[in-house]
């Protein structure tokens, strides 16, 4: 297979992990920023969702890039992991880690959990099969309308609020996001190292920023189900 030839090289495999990972991380950052619009109210969040859906083919191009990145990321990681297990057939009876962080050593497991979480998340909010009772249309007055009209659009705000009012769903999201955070803590700095950006004067900053960015993303995303559960967001719904 011509496309998958890179898998024969250990370094090119790592580079594919880094580049596909970078695409997914950028997506997570944009997605997080978009989600925070929920704090600006129902109209803002629903308008944003309406805007995304109005992109049409562009939305699908983005989705295809993300799907291809995710597939390459997963295929490459599995190949690397099996080789790594093969290269260390006998484990030490006693092993003391000096520098390898817990998040770094568990990438394959957090990765599998992130995949499971993403599948659930897509079924819940994108394909919308897990909680069909939460999906309503919203009737709204467009800002630029010259006369009184009511248009119909999908009510994302209500869907999110009704979903997160269920403590079980909220807990799944909180755990899922924390696991994403663990994965990113190692991933972001690892990307720079793999692509060859490591010099004494800035790499410690990249390592700290990697952890900081992971924590910021987790806090932003976890705040949404918690705000809904506390009634701070969507109290009226």
């Amino acid at each position: 297979m011509g496309l998958l030839n890179y898998l024969r090289s250990t370094i090119l495999s790592k580079v594919v992990m880094a580049i596909t990972g970078a695409i997914l991380v950028i997506y997570v950052i944009v997605h997080t920023a978009g989600n925070l619009l929920i704090y600006l109210g129902q109209d803002t969040l629903n308008s944003y969702s309406q805007f995304l859906h109005s992109l049409g083919p562009i939305l699908w191009i983005i989705r295809i890039i993300l799907i291809v990145s995710a597939i390459l990321h997963i295929v490459t990681s599995i190949k690397l992991k099996f080789e790594n297990w093969g290269a260390k057939p006998t484990k030490y009876a006693v092993k003391n880690y000096l520098k390898a962080k817990f998040s770094s050593r568990t990438m394959i497991w957090t990765g599998i959990m992130v995949l499971a979480f993403v599948v659930y998340h897509l079924l819940h909010f994108t394909i919308r099969v897990t909680n069909p009772q939460h999906y309503y249309p919203e009737f709204y007055q467009p800002h630029n309308a010259v006369s009184y009209v009511l248009l119909e659009r999908f009510d994302v705000y209500k869907m999110v609020v009704l979903g997160f009012k269920n403590p079980l769903i909220s807990i799944i999201y909180i755990i899922g996001v924390v696991i994403v955070g663990f994965h990113l803590d190692h991933a972001i700095q690892s990307m720079f190292q793999t692509l060859g950006y490591n010099q004494k004067h800035y790499f410690p900053i990249i390592q700290k920023s990697s952890t900081a960015l992971a924590i910021i993303i987790v806090i932003c995303l976890v705040s949404i189900p918690i705000s809904v559960l506390l009634g701070l967001v969507g109290g009226k719904i």
Partner: peptide, 30 residues
């Protein structure tokens, strides 16, 4: 095996070789 950027090698190295040399090799290899 393949590098997972755990940096355990750098910590164990009796000569304190830095993992920045791995980064340089990655770039040269590319």
């Amino acid at each position: 095996g393949n590098c997972s950027n755990l940096y355990e090698c750098e910590a164990a190295c009796p000569k304190e070789i830095s993992v920045r040399f791995i980064a340089l090799m990655n770039r040269d290899y590319l």
